[in-house]
Structures are given as C-alpha cells and as structure tokens.
Design a protein around this nucleic acid. Structure first.
Lengths: 279, 279
DNA sequence: CAAAAACTCTCATGTCGGTTGAGAGTTTTG
DNA sequence: CAAAACTCTCAACCGACATGAGAGTTTTTG
C-alpha cells in the first residue's frame, strides 16, 4: 500500500464510519475512492478526500438525505443547499412540535396508569375537587344510551374524524368522555348530549373547544360502560340522599382505557361525575 | 354482508387508515379480523374492534414500535407499557435535544452561506469588532505549517475523534480553525499552536473548552489554506505599518467550507485575525 | 518464504412501517 | 347479468445502512 493511500478500513476508522457505509457511498456516487486496484478491485482513498467526507457527514447531521447531499455535491450550488436547509428547518420545527405533543401524551399516559393502579374500588363514591379542563366536543347525533355499543362506537368515529378535519393532533384521541344535561340526569333519563376528548389547556376556546369549570364533584367509579346506567342512578340517589345540589351537567369520563384484554370490549376505568354546589 | 360486519375497506375508512395497513396488522397479529370467509378469504371486522385499533393507533402516536404494541396487547400488562413508555420518554427527550442542535446548526449554516455570498474580496483587510466565542480546542501535535495538508488533515481527524470521545455532538465539527501564539506571529514564524471548533456559548469552560475574548481584530480574508502563509505575513505588515499593537494570539478561522467542487481541496472562505489594542 | 491472520471483494438479505402494483377472484350495484 | 367496485395474495420498493456468505487479497508472523 502506498504511503498516500488509505485502504477502505483505514479510511473508515479515521472517519468513524463503517466500511459498508463507505462502500454504499461509493455505489451511490457520494464519494468514490480515488484509486481502485484493477485486479483486486480494492478501494483506496486519499486523505484529502476527508474534506468531502466531512462535508457529507455534516450535511447528514443537518438531517439531509443522501440523495440531496449528492445533488448538492454534484451541482456545487450554494443556492441549492440553502433551499434544502430552509425546507429542512421547517421539517425540524414540525418534528419538535410533534415530539412535544408526544412527550406530553406519554407523561399523561404514565400518570393515567399510576392512577389506574391506585384507583378506588368499583362503586366507590367520592367528593372531589376537579380542576378546570378543556374539551373538544361534538353533540351526539343519536342518544346512544337507547342503542347498543355500536352506536356509541360510531359517535366515537365521528369525533375522531372531526378531530382530524380540524387539524388537531390525533394524539388527543384517547380518554374520551360524554356529557348529559343536568336536567336529564336529575330526571333520571339517560340522554346523551355531547361526546368529547380532553385537550391541552392552552388551546383557545371556540365552537368545538370549551372549558369545563373547576369545582367540587360527586363521583362514582366503575369499569365498564355497561354499568353506566346503574351507577349513574346510584350517583343521583347519593346526591338526593345527602342533599347535594347538582350544579351542572353530568360527565362520564374515561380515566384509563386498555383495550388489550380481548377484542370485544373496551377495558376501562371510568368516573361518573356531577358538579355540586354547597349552599 | 351482515349488518354487524365491516369489510376491510369500511373498517379502513372509518378509522382513517389504509386497507393495506389493516392487512399488515392482521399479518403481524396486531388486530385480526373477527371473521374470515373461508371461501373468499375476505376479512370482516366488528365495529367493537375499533377499541383495539384505537389503542394501537394511540400507542403508535406515542412513538411505540409495532412489535412493542403487539407485546403489550398480548400480555395485557400495564407494567410493560409503563416501562416502554418510560424508556420512550428518554428517547424523545434525546431526540428533542438533537433536533435543537440540528436547528441551531442549520441556522448557522444558512447564515454562513449568506455571509459567504456577501464576503469581501480576497485580500481585503478589515478592522472589526468580534464578539466573544467559545472553542473546543486541542494542541497540535506537530507544526503542520512545516508539513503538507496531510498532516493538517490528520490533526483534524484527531480533533474530530476527540470531540466524539468527549461526547460532544459531532455536529460541531465544522468551521474548524487554528491558532498561533502571538509571539510566533510577531516574529514571522509559522508555528501552529492549537486546532479548534466553535461551540455553543452555553458550554461550561473546561480543559478543552475555552473562551476567546471579544475585541477589535485586524482581519484579512482569503479562500485557500495554501495562501495562509502569505496572507498572515501581509496581516503582520499591515499591523506594523499602522502601528496596531497585537494584543493576543493569531487565529485562522474557517468561515465557510464547501468541499463540493472537487475531491482534492477544501473549498473555503477564511479569515485570519489578530486582536489589537488601542493603547 | 509459507502459513496464518486480517482485510476486502461482491452479492444477497434483513431492518421498520408501511405503500404500490399485478393478476386473479368476489361482492355489490344498476 | 354485466359492469363496477372491492378484495385477495404475493412481490417489490423506500432509506440508510447492517450482517453474513463465500471467495479472493494483503499484511503480519514465525
């Protein structure tokens, strides 16, 4: 081996890159060895080619694709690289936003799991302060209490598609819930009013995004939609017996949902709640 | 088609997913159609299976891999999902850091391109205020001015590997530079002292990371390392003629580098500089 | 100077999360 | 009952490599 020339292994080592990557780069024309032995087909590089390889690695670190890098290297056009970078900048910003949403969602989910593990027994009634929340909601087109779970699932689909249409990250589609008018609840009629998902507090209020005020809520816990009618009744009875004055609409909130156990049912942890006023 | 069953196309549509994705999920066991016609092999889903599909899509939105999702669904273990999520959280945070670095590097590069286009003619001498900078540096093991570009390239490799060893993002490896002691410069001897890369201002100072103070610098612009000796000489002459008192070490800074034009040389834009004191 | 070790070659395959397409068969619609 | 719409399986493709087989080459070692 001549003094000046580096074998592919040496070139790889001094550049912290793998031999196969160098071969790939040769194949796609990113960086060709300066000399190829015509008999053995061995590739040999010149140390000066490091400059080009540095450039390649730098552009890669900027997130450019190999195809783009090749175009830049072929054209030698600084305008081209600039336009690619400006485009890339947008991409990166979007990715960061997505990651932020993901991170928040992951944290929410971990918390939700913790809550699930420490959850009260089914049927427990509590009186809790619940901070304010924001929801993305849609009126239900049918009273799904009168029909089966299929109708509820359809409503859910519509909510999901509506979220997508409104360009809201689909990641919010989880922990859904439904509301019922105070009047219906008090009169013991199960009449669905709205279906919703919780969203970030910093979304501006609008037609579909509204705020549920904080306050004291009487709550009852359960683990299946099937039991909602019965437990809603118990909740109402409890309020009546204890003379709590229902101060707003009824909410059925999904705290945790793991549809992992079988295909047929949503494995859930629910909290039915009504705001109550003291005095 | 029975009332209860959804064809794969219907299932796809109501879930905003493609038919082929559903087939893939079937194949890898994420979600199996509840009924397959034994003659036509057509897949049919139940609307209740949306719950499982929702779960899948949600976990996907959290950045989980399909394999992980399958494991969670198979085991039905909330501990498993939690450990995956905790791990994923770390990943996401790392990714965000990387993206932040990328974004900064992209912006620097775009600026550098702009600067390149508005750069003064070769040989221009300026007197400029240069804000303080931070550098990651290594002493040069040989005086590369005495040897060829190969020796300089070797020093560069060492700097690069040193960066990697110190766990500094490789993205800083760009816009390298070298320094020379004030004494050497004043006596007209070309003796390399250090080789460096610029790093973020918020890195803490250490053995290898130090601060170059802000100040007025006499500078000369050029476009090739080959010309450095000559232009360094001109810089010194200029200082002498104009009675500028050299106040610190000489710096050779790479402002822009595009090794795109050929394999043999670094296509560069350089600024030689010495700090000067006015009294 | 020969044998062993280390290296390199080409070519094929796998990774992930799908998408696209071909060619054949099935269901729905008018 | 024909046409349109749908679905099936199977294979190939994307990007940026990694891995491995089997053959050949170079370098090191004794």
């Amino acid at each position: 081996m001549k003094n000046e020339l580096l074998s592919i292994g040496e070139m790889a080592k001094i550049n912290n890159i793998s031999v196969s990557t160098l071969r790939l780069y040769d194949e796609i024309g990113l960086i060709k060895p300066c000399y190829i032995d015509s008999e053995s087909r061995y590739r040999y590089y010149n140390i000066r080619q490091n400059a080009r390889l540095d450039m390649i690695q730098y552009m890669k670190a900027l997130g450019m694709e190999l195809k783009e890098i090749r175009e830049v290297l072929e054209s030698g056009d600084t305008k081209l690289i600039e336009s690619i970078l400006i485009h890339r900048k947008k991409q990166v910003k979007e990715q960061m936003q997505n990651l932020n949403l993901q991170l928040a969602a992951i944290s929410r989910t971990i918390e939700s799991l913790e809550r699930y593990r420490k959850s009260p027994n089914i049927g427990t009634i509590t009186i809790e302060y619940i901070p304010h929340r924001k929801i993305y909601s849609m009126p239900t087109s049918i009273n799904f209490y009168e029909y089966g779970i299929e109708v509820y699932e359809n409503e859910l689909r519509e909510l999901k598609n509506s979220l997508i249409k409104h360009n809201l990250p689909q990641i919010y589609y989880c922990n859904a819930g439904t509301t019922m008018k105070k009047k219906s609840f008090l009169e013991g009629r199960l009449e669905s009013d709205e279906i919703f998902v919780l969203v970030d507090d910093n979304f501006p209020e609008s037609d579909s995004i509204k705020r549920i005020e904080s306050g004291m809520y009487v709550c009852i816990y359960l683990d299946s939609f099937d039991d909602e009618p019965e437990y809603a009744k118990r909740l109402l009875e409890y309020c009546t017996e204890n003379n709590y004055k229902v101060a707003g609409d009824y909410i059925c909130e999904v705290l945790t949902e793991f549809s992992v156990f079988d295909d047929e049912k949503r494995g859930m942890f629910l909290r039915l709640q009504v705001p109550v006023a003291f005095r």
